[in-house]
Design a protein around this nucleic acid. Structure first.
Lengths: 204, 204
DNA sequence: GTTAGCATGTAAGGAGTTACATGATTTT
DNA sequence: AAAATCATGTAACTCCTTACATGCTAAC
């Protein structure tokens, strides 16, 4: 008597898969390097440990989404040793999977972390996909904003200046992000140019 | 051959324990109600499922930090039924544990979620504890701010206006929070009055 | 009298971490 | 040649969620 719902994906996507496939799409890499790149491109948030990474690489290899080859052409360094530098690269199936993940909006793409990962690989997406994901994220942020606006005055006490301050910070952050997203969506819709810039890129 | 380091706490605190003990300090409650309250007081972030809550209540009962009693005096509703409404309340040991957790700064209290939980029960702390925790959070936020300021210009391309925008939002949020924390700390230090208000509570 | 919501739980497992184990290469 | 860092991996454990199971109580 299996419990798992047939609809439910066996694996809750957390963007980790997207991050790996997206990185490997830029260029083949070995695990160690992959992790270092991710820790940069996924800025601060979400550090994946090796204990997470290597099993994931195995799983992806098992699904034939990535391929492990001995590292010819990629690295001129001596790698004719017994053990070292397993270089992974995307397979055709991996590329397909990546484009599905890139275009796949859904709750996971709107979450704080998932959205950041999606954004990091936006340059590989179509304008339509970008607009769809940006709109989804905006909806999510609008909900958060409304929830914070309506947040209870907390049972007749003004003792909670502490919580109130945090609420205000969160509210302002949500408002700012909604504005930013709206600008991005507008820009994306006007000039469908894939290389869009923020409007206020002043002398800064 | 156990691997666990003797120093390491058996259980990584996630603030969940603090949230439960803190809530029960306000008044005894049964599990269902507790969860509803938490979903409000921990505003939006962090929803704990029942599958998490009840085992935790058992653990806390096992540690004698909370006590399960049959619900006299608390609830005039008919509860002389076979099964229903297990009311939990803090024991003496639980109160002690709570005050330890409240004053306990450390990485867990500076994280986004942990800090929010701590803040929600700040009215139960001393001014010194508050200052200590606020300073810890500020340090954490200053680090985040600096990391975002120095974030790489991304390998000679301005393709990533997307990521750049998000970076700017994060940076601004960190700056704002540092300012807010600084004000809070100042206020806390001047008038040691437990009821501190934000300075700019204008006509909004 | 049956649906909806209150209330309490358990089993299975997903997602990730830390600590451990090992070996290769580069630096000092 | 010792120390640091690169590189790959595994085992055990934490912490939480989902889905399941059960029963009581109020509303329609």
């Amino acid at each position: 008597m299996t419990i798992v719902d047939p609809d439910a994906p066996g694996r809750r996507s957390t963007g980790f898969e997207l991050a790996i496939l997206g990185s490997l799409a830029e260029s083949p890499m070995h695990g160690y390097e992959l992790r270092q790149r991710l820790s940069v491109s996924l800025g601060s948030l979400r550090m994946f440990s090796y204990g997470s990474l290597y099993p994931m690489l195995r799983r992806l290899t098992g699904s034939a989404l990535i391929d492990t080859h001995a590292g010819h052409e990629v690295d001129p360094a001596p790698l004719t040793s017994k053990r070292s530098r397993v270089v992974y690269c995307l397979t055709g199936a991996g590329r397909e999977r990546l484009s599905v993940l890139l275009g796949d909006d859904g709750p996971q793409a709107w979450s704080d972390e998932g959205f950041e990962i999606h954004l990091a690989f936006f340059h590989r997406t179509t304008a339509e996909d970008r607009v769809r994901i940006l709109e989804g994220r905006r909806r999510r942020m609008e909900e958060r904003r409304e929830a914070l606006r309506l947040a209870m005055p907390r049972a007749a006490d003004r003792l909670d200046a502490y919580t109130e301050g945090l609420r205000r910070l969160g509210l302002e952050a949500a408002e700012r992000e909604v504005c930013w997203l709206t600008e991005l969506i507008e820009t994306e819709r006007r000039g469908a140019s894939p290389t869009t810039r923020l409007p206020d890129a002043g002398p800064a």
